[in-house]
């Protein structure tokens, strides 16, 4: 199938889009600290405060939204390619819920009160535990075993999270857990970004290393093996790469749905349905989409901010339905 525009042009367009959104994210804010207010402060002798807002509040938030979006996009594209199933998103292998469970336990035990970074650290620990479990449960099995193991891990983690909320004797802590689970990058600091970034980068490298095998896998597992693809190695790269990139991100932001599912869908026709080309395109697209959602969160409602995870799901799900309906009409006509 021939893509509507050449691959390099597509990548350039997505890069320009991401850069534009990165810039926009640095200057757009809630009414009290909006674009014009900041410009006014820059020229009106209050440049220090304006720069502090940009450097210490907007920058970490922007970097986190972009890198988490990239992780979700690239992991979604890789998993969909590896499993040859367009309905897969990074949450399917249980990484989102295991990272969330780690974070919830940090709230419950009070560690997050004593030491703020205990929250993302325990989230990352949860994601790593998920990798170990997945390798143990589905390390040598097929794609079906992997999906089922992921569903089982998700179910156990969701149940344990409910149990934690159930047992929490402190209504304040319960409320905080519920708000955290909705997902947000608001007021995260540079520490959060620096903590998650190395894990996300390592995950990206692993996912990128699986790109060639994905092309061969689109012909089926047996054909791929005969072409010299090491299935076990590919599976390990895909699982570990997804778990540490998305897991580390989730540990800092909370659960963010739909980006990993929608972005590869959107871009697949544009890269001519070649799995390996979809990875980079989805990375850029995922970063852009999450940044756009985070900018929307800041301007949509004056006053209390909407949670980012709520916005991605509310906008993402209907859009996804529309895509499915469109694809169906095309197939049937």
């Amino acid at each position: 199938m021939k893509p509507p525009l050449p691959y390099p042009v597509l990548l350039l367009a997505l890069t320009v889009l991401l850069a534009a959104l990165l810039f926009l994210s640095m200057i757009v804010g809630p009414a009290t600290a909006g674009t014009f207010e900041l410009i006014g402060m820059m020229s009106g002798g209050e440049a220090d405060t304006a720069w502090m807002i940009i450097r210490e509040v907007r920058l970490p938030r922007t970097l986190l939204a972009a890198t988490m979006g990239i992780s979700l996009g690239v992991a979604g594209a890789t998993l969909q390619g590896f499993m040859r199933n367009p309905l897969v998103d990074p949450g399917v292998i249980g990484v989102t819920s295991s990272a969330s469970l780690g974070a919830v336990l940090a709230f419950y035990t009070g560690f997050s009160l004593a030491f703020p970074l205990a929250l993302p650290l325990m989230g990352i620990a949860g994601a790593l535990l998920c990798v170990v479990l997945l390798q143990g449960l589905a390390g040598r099995g097929g794609v079906l075993t992997l999906i089922l193991a992921g569903v089982a891990i998700s179910a156990v983690c969701a149940a344990l999270m409910s149990l934690t909320l159930n047992l929490s004797p402190n209504p304040y802590a319960s409320a905080e857990i519920m708000f955290w689970l909705m997902g947000s990058v608001t007021d995260r600091s540079m520490d959060h970004f620096l903590l998650a970034a190395p894990f996300m980068a390592a995950g990206w490298v692993m996912l990128a290393a699986s790109a060639r095998s994905l092309d061969a896998l689109s012909l089926g597992e047996e054909s791929a093996s005969s072409l010299g693809v090491n299935l076990n190695r590919t599976r390990t790269l895909v699982i570990t790469g997804t778990a540490i990139s998305v897991g580390a991100g989730t540990a800092v932001t909370g659960g963010l749905g739909f980006i990993g599912l929608v972005v590869p869908h959107l871009l697949r026709p544009l890269v001519g349905h070649t799995p390996s080309r979809l990875l980079l395109a989805s990375a850029l697209g995922g970063g852009s989409l999450l940044l756009a959602a985070d900018i929307l969160v800041r301007v949509l409602i004056v006053g209390t901010e909407l949670k980012l995870g709520v916005v991605t799901a509310i906008i993402g799900a209907p859009f996804f339905l529309w895509l499915i309906l469109k694809a169906r009409t095309e197939l049937e006509s």
Partner: peptide, 12 residues
Amino acid sequence: NNGLAEEVLMAK
């Protein structure tokens, strides 16, 4: 204020 860091910083 709505408890956002930006708003608090604006108040110096």
